[in-house]
Design a protein around this nucleic acid. Structure first.
Length: 830
DNA sequence: AGCACGCCGACT
DNA sequence: GTCGGCGTGCTC
């Protein structure tokens, strides 16, 4: 094939060539699944034309290698400067995602400034072997060199790691604790001590099948009979067909017998896919209860838009107003139009609750997608959606990529929750993407929350979203009474009395006497808050993170909450060597043990990251609460998240200020949401709720607004503050993060990036109104041994910001171990 | 990421 | 002159 280089006459000839071999449609765009993860154009050989389809994996030549790519569609703009290669093979029989997702993937790649192939990789369930695995193995020469000790002592250690077994580079790095570097491997390969083998491995996640045995007409009349065969034939006569696994329960040797019988023509065997069921326990079906007038109005209002193209709603329902029931009715209405429903929930723990409700109403039509599933389970759920076998999917943020070909309704529950923001290589916000996906697929999107984000309320006021309120709690339950206690007046007290006001203590006592449940919220896990040397006042810092350690009594150690590193609690002060370390403040661990001491008869439990680490532990706590085998629950902010605790009447907020004092412009919003949410946990049953909110800042507007359940007042003040300081939603932000293992080098590269940025901004008037803050050292200057710098870009329009960042990144050459990541619409500026 | 290519200094 | 070290840049 001639290269389409050069002038017009040549161009025509190319077209003639295309016409001649009838292959104009035979050019396809493929996203390669190895760096640089970009889209490339390939030619499809004639014999593969019928097989190729968007969403299928293909094997393509790439440089001197063969790699896996994903078909995006026919090429729109064939590249004119390079020769186009032909693809080698089509891997899949069925597409692994529908073609309609391609524009969505493109949008995500553009908006978040991330390579298309990498976007698709994050979207797909794991185990699809998208990248060829490269493994390294010690050669005989390497073995010899190692045993003869002719190698450099520095290489000795690395090579002996490799001597144990061949493995991948990543595993190698882990096994050698990061001491083996890429350059070492390349050097060893040159010396022929090490062999690199690149292979395209089999999928780890494969469909599972079960064998179905069918009766054959006249089969029973066949020659070979035996009592066991008779039994099998009789069972098949009765049921028509049976799974082989069920047959085995009746006839232990069924597997062999059936094979023989199939040969003799007595039965017929077919295969049918089975799905590993992530929902272990059976769920009793329920039927739709009657809606309140308010709920019914919400369903009618939103339901009117179903099937009529894109529309977006904010469903603002106070805690306990029955949003889930509205979702269920809307889902039902959507299914009646034969359109699928996608439900996003902020975290795994809440998925089971939502899934239960949906399963009870819709049975087997529900798929689950989240990271708690095994790779095989996730693959199965994904495939059931892609093959139209389910019409509802419930999942965490990555489920926004669920492979629905058509979509009627997208629900984002607890839309204000920051867990929707993914903080990996691709930093996306699942709520924002849900809105975009709804627009692209002409679906209705519902953002539900008791405390809608400032962003969403702003969009309502802009006319972008429609707002629907649920103001009443179900069964006319009242919102809890909130009482504020000033912690300042307890400053002179010693020990726990500093943190527990007499009013809170009395309320706990009274609630326990009434046999009601108490929730105590403290946004700090561990035993004590701060660790300070008694001699010199130096705080205990993590060796890898420049972050204060926290004392954990259960393991009797100081622990870093950022990298997990811990030191024995006998460790001395890092500065003066002083042995006496003061433990100031209080954490959930201490609060729990103090509560147990003060109320010995009460059953006290704790819910924080430490106690729910074990799989199923959270469910157990929730169950125990429901069965009233817990009297006092102590917990961190996870207790505020949407769980339904029907028997809790008293909520104590130990210190409402912990999230207020963070150096982040969203601190006020987070505090208000947290307080409103945690207060909402009280009084969801028949008894009224009571909340005691302790704070050092009783006059702060976030606290006052929370106290009066006054969302409007909070919004009005917060939006003024954002406007005055030109923060989102009035401006758009992109944050560039510069990370590296070396302090000076990271600082130097950050400075260079800043200079590049200034130069580009000066060159083009389009960037004139973009503000660059930094580069500055990040507030968390080091995490897990990585030094962190940041450059924050702020502008009125997202377009110029995007273009500036793209120009900046393409002009910036960085050393291999310094990383630059892009965070569009950053949520955490630390 | 991997691989080729091209440029330097150290050897046959 | 050739080998092999590493920095640079491309992959349809």
């Amino acid at each position: 094939m001639p290269e389409a280089r050069g002038g017009a006459p040549f161009f025509e000839e190319v077209n003639v060539t295309f016409d001649h071999c009838n292959s104009v449609q035979a050019l396809i765009d493929v996203a390669v699944m190895v760096p640089p993860f970009q889209r490339f154009t390939y030619r499809v050989p004639e014999e593969m034309l019928t097989e190729v389809a968007p969403g299928k994996r293909v094997l393509v030549p790439f440089g001197s290698r063969r790699v896996i790519g994903l078909v995006l569609g026919t090429a729109e703009t064939p590249p004119s400067t390079v020769g186009i290669k032909a693809l080698i093979d089509v891997i899949d029989d069925q597409p692994i995602f529908p073609a309609v997702l391609v524009p969505f993937f493109n949008w995500v790649a553009d908006y978040y400034i991330h390579p298309l192939g990498a976007v698709i990789q994050t979207a797909l369930p794991g185990g699809l072997a998208l990248a060829g695995q490269t493994s390294y193995r010690l050669t005989e020469a390497g073995q010899a060199a190692l045993s003869e000790r002719t190698v450099d002592p520095a290489d000795q250690a690395g090579l002996s790691v490799l001597a144990k077994s061949p493995c991948s580079y990543q595993r190698l790095r882990r096994l050698s604790k990061g001491r083996i570097r890429r350059a070492d491997l390349e050097r060893w390969i040159k010396k022929e001590w090490v062999l690199r083998r690149s292979e395209l491995p089999a999928d780890r996640a494969r469909p599972q099948y079960e064998r179905i045995v069918h009766a054959v007409p006249g089969g029973a009349a066949s020659i070979r009979r035996s009592p066991r065969r008779e039994r099998i034939l009789a069972l098949l006569q009765q049921y028509g067909f049976m799974a082989l696994s069920d047959l085995k329960k009746h006839v232990a040797t069924a597997a062999d017998l059936v094979r023989a019988m199939s040969r003799d023509g007595q039965v017929q065997v077919t295969q049918r896919p089975i799905y590993r069921d992530p929902l272990g326990e059976p769920i009793l079906p329920d039927s739709a209860p009657a809606l309140s007038d308010e709920q019914a109005r919400a369903v009618t209002a939103i339901g009117a838009s179903l099937g009529g193209g894109y529309d977006a709603f904010v469903l603002a329902g106070v805690t306990g107003s029955g949003k889930t029931e509205v979702y269920l009715h809307l889902a039902d209405a959507t299914l009646q139009r034969e359109l699928p429903v996608l439900v996003l929930v902020p975290e795994i723990a809440l998925i089971s609750q939502m899934a239960r409700a949906f399963r009870a109403r819709f049975g087997e039509r529900v798929a689950l997608l989240h990271s708690g599933l095994s790779q095989g389970e996730r693959f199965d759920q994904w495939r059931r959606i892609a093959q139209h076998q389910v019409s509802i999917a419930i999942g965490a943020r990555s489920a926004v990529f669920a492979p629905f070909e058509r979509l009627g309704l997208l629900i984002v529950d607890e839309e204000h929750d920051d867990s929707y923001k993914q903080e990996g290589a691709l930093r996306y916000h699942a709520r924002d993407m849900a809105v975009v996906r709804a627009r692209l697929q002409e679906a209705v999107v519902v953002l539900g929350s008791a405390t809608p984000s400032l962003q969403s309320i702003y969009n309502v006021n802009n006319g972008k979203f429609k707002r629907i309120d649920l103001l009443a709690r179900v069964d006319h339950r009242l919102l809890p009474r909130i009482q504020v206690q000033d912690l300042g007046r307890l400053r002179e007290e010693r020990g726990l009395r500093r943190f527990l006001s007499p009013e809170l203590m009395a309320a706990i006592q009274a609630a326990l006497a009434r046999r009601e449940q108490v929730l105590l919220f403290l946004n700090r896990r561990g035993f004590a808050g701060a660790l300070v040397c008694a001699a010199c006042g130096q705080p205990m810092l993590c060796e890898h993170c420049d972050i204060s350690l926290t004392y954990h009594r259960r393991i009797n150690a100081y622990q870093c909450h950022y990298c997990g590193h811990s030191r024995a609690a006998t460790a001395a002060c890092g500065r003066c060597g002083g042995a006496r370390i003061l433990r100031l403040g209080v954490g959930t661990e201490q609060l729990q043990s103090e509560m147990q001491r003060i109320f010995p008869a009460a059953r006290v439990a704790r819910m924080d990251r430490d106690t729910i680490r074990r799989k199923g532990a959270l469910i157990e706590i929730l169950k125990a609460l429901r069965h009233r085998t817990i009297d006092i629950l102590v917990g961190t902010q996870m207790v505020a998240k949407g769980h339904d605790y029907p028997h809790i009447t008293l909520v104590g907020v130990i210190c409402a200020d912990l999230s207020l004092n963070l150096p982040d412009f969203r601190a006020g919003e987070r505090t208000f949401q947290l307080l409103a949410q945690v207060a909402g946990r009280a009084g969801r049953g028949e008894s009224p709720g009571h909340v005691i909110l302790q704070t050092y800042n009783p006059e702060h507007f976030s606290i006052i607004a929370a106290r009066h359940h006054d969302h409007v007042a909070f919004y009005r003040q917060e939006i003024e503050f954002r406007k005055a300081l030109q923060y989102p939603p009035f401006t758009r932000m992109v944050q560039l993060r510069i990370n590296g293992p070396d302090k000076a080098q990271t600082a130097e590269q950050a400075r260079r990036l800043g200079e590049h940025c200034t130069r580009i901004r000066m060159q083009n008037p389009e960037y004139g109104r973009i503000e660059a803050l930094g580069p500055i050292e990040a507030p968390l200057a080091r995490i897990s041994g990585q030094y962190r710098w940041q450059l924050l870009l702020k502008g009125a329009q997202v377009g110029p910001l995007h273009r500036l960042v793209r120009a900046l990144l393409s002009a910036f050459n960085r050393p291999a171990d310094v990383q630059v990541t892009v965070d569009v619409d950053p949520l955490f500026l630390m």
